[in-house]
Simulated scan of single mutants.
Amino acid sequence: MASITLGGSPASTLGNLPEIGSIAPDFTLTKLDLSEASLADFKGQKLVLNIFPSVDTGTCAQSVRHFNKDASELENTKVLCISKDLPFAQKRFCGAEGIENVVMLSDFKTGKFGNDYGLTFSDSAFKNLLSRCVVVLDKNGKVVYTEQVAETADEPNYQAALDVLKNA
């Protein structure tokens, strides 16, 4: 379990992020059109999993904007922005912001992704939402970088995640 903070107050997750060098757990998430996407749908591509509580918060929205800009410059790489927001909210946000270079996915149906990746809040005001994390996978689905952001209000280390991609 990760011990993090939410607005300076202690918070915990259900577990820990997958270990570097391990194969990422499979997942099934909901796309904007309410169809499903799984890890297998992105086989052969490098992936940045940008995970956050809700696109309707400033820091979460900024992470989507930031990775949207970066994603357009990455070769053979997809950025998956994952939250428990309803796909309708994700779609509204992307339309209003002109977000076109990332794939928005939701864990709202089962919460299995957050549980399998060990990043669901187990307590605090955000209980059952996804904590702010970045997980980078190489083209074989191997975890090559993880970051569990210590304070939920803080942005992830974008550059560290992007630097790992260059060698993945």
Rank of each mutant, 00 (worst) to 15 (best):
M1C: 07
M1Q: 11
M1T: 10
A2L: 01
S3K: 14
S3E: 14
I4V: 14
T5A: 08
L6D: 02
L6M: 14
G7S: 09
G7T: 07
G8I: 03
G8M: 07
S9G: 01
A11D: 03
S12E: 12
T13L: 04
L14M: 10
L14S: 08
L14R: 14
G15M: 05
G15Y: 05
P18G: 06
I20Y: 05
G21L: 10
S22D: 12
I23V: 12
I23C: 02
A24M: 01
P25A: 00
D26C: 03
F27I: 00
T28W: 04
L32Y: 02
L32I: 14
L32Q: 10
D33R: 13
D33W: 10
D33N: 15
L34E: 11
S35D: 09
S38H: 07
L39I: 03
A40N: 13
K43H: 11
G44V: 01
G44C: 03
G44P: 02
L47W: 07
L47S: 05
L49S: 02
L49W: 06
L49N: 06
N50P: 07
I51K: 11
F52I: 04
V55A: 12
D56L: 14
T57S: 15
T59R: 13
A61H: 03
Q62S: 12
S63A: 14
V64C: 03
H66Q: 14
H66T: 14
N68H: 10
D70K: 15
D70C: 11
A71L: 03
L74K: 13
E75D: 15
E75T: 13
N76S: 11
N76P: 03
K78S: 13
K78Q: 13
L80R: 06
S83H: 09
K84T: 07
D85E: 02
D85G: 06
F88L: 04
A89P: 01
F93K: 12
F93V: 07
C94G: 08
G95W: 06
G98D: 04
I99C: 09
V102T: 15
V103Q: 13
V103E: 12
L105I: 02
L105S: 12
L105Y: 11
S106A: 13
D107T: 05
F108R: 09
T110R: 14
G111Q: 08
G111N: 10
F113I: 01
D116S: 13
G118N: 08
T120A: 14
F121Y: 15
F121N: 05
F121D: 04
S122D: 06
S124M: 04
S124R: 12
S124D: 04
A125W: 01
F126D: 03
K127G: 00
N128P: 00
N128L: 11
L130M: 07
R132E: 01
V134S: 09
V134D: 01
L137T: 01
D138S: 06
T146R: 11
E147D: 05
V149W: 08
V149M: 03
A150C: 00
A150E: 13
T152M: 11
A153T: 14
P156S: 07
Y158P: 02
Y158F: 15
A161F: 04
A161N: 10
L162Q: 09
D163M: 02
V164T: 15
V164W: 00
V164C: 06
V164N: 09
L165G: 05
K166D: 07
N167M: 04
A168I: 03
